[in-house]
């Protein structure tokens, strides 16, 4: 990329902030990786492909709930934003099949709800 100027910063901000796609974020700090975030991330990517789900799967840092890692935040339009905690293979599959594709939140796995 070329050297940025102040105006570029503003246009970049506008460009990247506009996206309104559904997304999933997986916590990829030391706490998350140690708890198995990579495996969860791989399973989510596989399942998204299998289900033809239109969703962006991203990596992020630690949100602070280290005891509940691996942590997966899911934002699907029309549903509350939630954090799934202690996610394993089974939960990751459920998240993709039920939450992302079926618009149904998964019971007993949510550790926090984003309240605006």
């Amino acid at each position: 990329m070329a050297k940025l100027t102040k105006n570029d910063l503003h246009s970049l901000k506008a460009k990247y902030a506009a996206s309104e796609k559904n997304w999933i974020k997986v916590g990829f700090s030391t706490c998350g990786i140690a708890a198995g975030a990579q495996k969860v991330y791989d399973v989510l990517c596989d399942e998204a492909r299998k289900n033809n789900a239109e969703i962006e799967i991203k990596k992020c840092g630690c949100v602070g709930m280290c005891s509940a890692e691996p942590l997966v935040e899911v934002n699907v339009k029309g549903l509350p934003r939630v954090f799934y905690g202690k996610v394993d293979r089974e939960t990751a599959i459920e998240i993709m099949e039920k939450h992302v594709c079926g618009n149904l939140l998964v019971n007993d796995r949510i550790y926090d709800v984003k309240v605006n």
């Binding site: 910063l9 460009k15 990247y16 916590g27 990596k59 992020c60 949100v63 602070g64």
Partner: peptide
């Protein structure tokens, strides 16, 4: 923290 992808500068600028 936990909002942006730490490895992407675009995310931080956004």
């Amino acid at each position: 923290c936990g909002v942006i992808d730490p490895e992407k500068i675009e995310d931080y600028i956004a």
